[in-house]
């Protein structure tokens, strides 16, 4: 199964992400983000936990990607192993993730593409026959 693919967009990067489950979709979105950013497979010596909630799974997906992006640029953390749980909770959706990765200085080491952010534009998570997909746009 394809984890993600790039599709056309005039100004930015548009991707379609796939997953057999909602958590897998979130995991593949994170992989797509980091494969866009760097060409590097880090060691897994640092552990980091993330917990987020939002009023919809779509907002949660974008918040998740922007959380990873911020921690990459601000805390210089590049994850390798991504264990993510997503599910409904009262008033919306919640996410907890356990990440293992390494430090990576984006201001000194090479960056493939400087992704500014994941955008909320027209993002929609679709479920078809138990498979999930979502279209997202990265501002680059």
């Amino acid at each position: 199964m394809k984890r993600y693919e790039f599709i056309e967009h005039t100004a930015d990067l548009r991707l379609r992400i796939y997953g057999r489950t909602l958590p897998e979709l979130f995991c593949h979105a994170a992989i797509a983000l980091f494969e866009t950013l760097v060409d590097h497979s880090p060691a897994g010596s640092i552990q980091k936990n993330v917990s987020l909630d939002s009023n919809s799974p779509e907002n949660l997906l974008i918040d998740w990607l922007n959380e990873l992006l911020s921690s990459f640029y601000a805390e210089q953390f590049l994850p390798r192993d991504i264990d993510v749980r997503v599910g409904p909770q009262e008033g919306g959706y919640a996410l907890t993730a356990c990440l293992r990765g390494d430090s990576y200085d984006p201001y000194a080491e090479p960056l493939k593409t400087e992704v500014k952010a994941a955008t909320y534009h027209q993002v929609k998570i679709e479920a078809d026959d138990g498979n999930f997909s979502a279209e997202i746009i990265f501002d680059v």
């Binding site: 005039t10 100004a11 930015d12 955008t119 534009h121």
Partner: peptide, 9 residues
């Protein structure tokens, strides 16, 4: 103008 996200560019 061209396709942006939210607002057009």
């Amino acid at each position: 103008i061209h396709w942006g996200y939210g607002f057009p560019i």
